Amino acid sequence: MTTTSTRLLDVRRLWAEPAALASPRGQQVRARFPEAEIIPVDSHWRIAELHGNAGNVERWIRVKTEDLVLGEKKSLTARPNGRSADWIAPSTSNGCAMACAYCYVPRRKGYANPITVFTNIDRIIGYLERHVRRQGPKPEPNQCDPHAWVYDLGENSDCSVDALVSDNVADLVGAFRGWPTAKASFATKHVNRDLLALDPRGRTRIRFSLMPEADARLLDLRTSPIRERIAAIDDFVAAGYEVHVNFSPVVLRAGWERDWAELLEQLADGTGPAFRAQAAAEIIMLTHNEQLHEVNLGWHPKAEELLWRPAEQQAKRSNGGMWNVRYRNDRKAAGVATLTELIAARTPWLTVRYAF
């Protein structure tokens, strides 16, 4: 593994469902971390030492670095989306080695969310193949894509980091390469140049998440620097990926307009005509969560000075039934309008697919 990969993953404990460990994919993961202690578990969801253990707040980064979980995905469902993608594909992993302060995945798992690898990849790809076949050709364009049904692969993880752990992502890219009516998609904050060799042939969309450097240094912990993400864009386009950008999350604070204008100029200066010809963006305004706020106060309270702004935020129930907070409607609308105007002025070639 590279130095960056080792910094993200120095796996000491491999918590494993026995069937997952015994599978070919499980053995591949085991071979990548041969020194890790094997700890058998009945369920990847019910690991008392990890999930719901408040003491892990103080070990937030160490858990992400040193712990890895192997399990099998039991329920296979492609959920309708309609925003970034037409469908949310069944997860091939859950959790992340990075530590973005606003990440929603810890809300579900409680206090720690190291990577869980789902090892039954053949079953997941088989399900997706049947689902794609049932859809047939896409009847009309929409904001997700004009021609292909788009499947989001990384709702609960970062696929670029997952690819450091197993070949699940490589297998998915290879599968979508052969499905002419469908396209894979995932957002990432990690530049994994091993993905350049996967030959996606335009059937996988990578969305590099971007925000001003000042925000990223405080909020996007353990991720690739913003300048490195921008520098990678043209290389991924040349390798056969469709590349979009996520402006996510947009944090409204003093001076944000100036910093976003500078980021747009960096994007324009750092990319070429091949990217611009197919470029599109998503604008995702900050959503936060009271439970995550309390967790963050235990390990990264400085981030909460930007993320937790009750005077500017309102409660919103998520699709999963949890109460989150987001900017008040008027504040959010004004922020979206301002950023959209900046994009039109600084990067007029950049289509905004949607804002949320």
Results as ranks from 00 to 15, higher is better:
residue 73 K to G: 00
residue 169 V to Y: 11
residue 104 Y to Q: 11
residue 109 K to M: 14
residue 159 C to G: 01
residue 158 D to Q: 09
residue 174 G to N: 06
residue 162 D to T: 14
residue 156 N to G: 00
residue 144 C to G: 02
residue 138 K to L: 00
residue 160 S to F: 11
residue 85 A to H: 06
residue 84 S to R: 08
residue 173 V to D: 08
residue 162 D to E: 15
residue 78 A to Q: 09
residue 133 R to V: 07
residue 92 T to P: 00
residue 71 G to C: 01
residue 131 H to L: 08
residue 89 A to T: 06
residue 125 I to D: 03
residue 155 E to S: 09
residue 159 C to A: 14
residue 137 P to F: 03
residue 91 S to L: 03
residue 133 R to A: 15
residue 165 V to K: 05
residue 136 G to I: 08
residue 124 I to C: 04
residue 162 D to V: 14
residue 74 K to T: 13
residue 100 C to V: 07
residue 85 A to I: 03
residue 96 C to H: 06
residue 85 A to L: 02
residue 153 L to A: 11
residue 104 Y to E: 10
residue 100 C to M: 08
residue 147 H to G: 08
residue 81 N to R: 10
residue 66 E to R: 10
residue 167 D to W: 12
residue 98 M to P: 02
residue 143 Q to C: 05
residue 88 I to F: 10
residue 145 D to Y: 01
residue 134 R to T: 11
residue 155 E to R: 12
residue 160 S to V: 04
residue 142 N to C: 14
residue 80 P to Y: 09
residue 111 Y to C: 12
residue 123 R to F: 00
residue 79 R to G: 00
residue 143 Q to D: 07
residue 154 G to V: 00
residue 76 L to M: 09
residue 111 Y to Q: 10
residue 85 A to G: 04
residue 139 P to R: 14
residue 134 R to D: 13
residue 62 R to W: 13
